Measured scan of single mutants.
Amino acid sequence: DEVTIHLGDKTIRVDGLDKELLEILKELARRGADEEELRKEIERWER
């Protein structure tokens, strides 16, 4: 499953996201997290 996250004018595509992680990323994005913060969160989950 590829998920596309839209952040204002930026788009991040991620393969096979965990549903819980997806919810966390959506919440972070709502709070104004930037792409770098979201990537760090994704990397934390992948470990």
Rank of each mutant, 00 (worst) to 15 (best):
W45N: 01
L25Y: 01
E35H: 06
E35G: 04
I5H: 03
W45C: 01
L38A: 02
L28N: 00
G32W: 01
K26A: 09
E2P: 12
I5K: 03
E43H: 08
I24T: 06
L21W: 02
E27I: 13
K10S: 13
R31S: 06
L17S: 06
K40V: 06
D34E: 08
G32V: 00
T4H: 15
G32P: 00
E37P: 00
D18M: 07
K40F: 08
I24Q: 05
E37H: 05
K26G: 03
K19E: 11
L17Q: 04
E23Q: 13
L17M: 09
E20D: 11
L28E: 00
R31P: 00
L38P: 00
L22Q: 12
D15N: 08
T11W: 07
K40E: 08
K19Q: 11
D9S: 07
R44T: 06
D34A: 09
G32S: 02
R44Y: 07
G8F: 06
R31I: 05
R30I: 06
E27H: 11
L22M: 11
R30Y: 06
E23C: 03
K10V: 14
E2W: 13
H6V: 14
K40G: 06
W45K: 01
L7C: 03
L38M: 07
G8V: 10
G16A: 09
I24F: 08
G32T: 01
G8N: 09
G16D: 08
K10Q: 08
L7N: 04
R47K: 11
T4Y: 14
R31F: 05
E36W: 15
E46D: 07
L17A: 07
E37D: 12
L25I: 09
T4W: 05
R44I: 09
E43Y: 06
K10A: 12
T11H: 07
R39Q: 08
D34M: 07
E35M: 09
T11R: 05
A29F: 15
D1Q: 12
G16P: 04
E35I: 13
L25K: 00
R47F: 13
E36G: 08
T4P: 07
L38Q: 01
R39C: 05
R44G: 05
V14C: 07
E2A: 12
L28I: 02
I5P: 03
K40S: 09
E43K: 06
E23W: 14
L21T: 01
L25A: 00
R13A: 09
D1T: 14
D9H: 07
E43S: 05
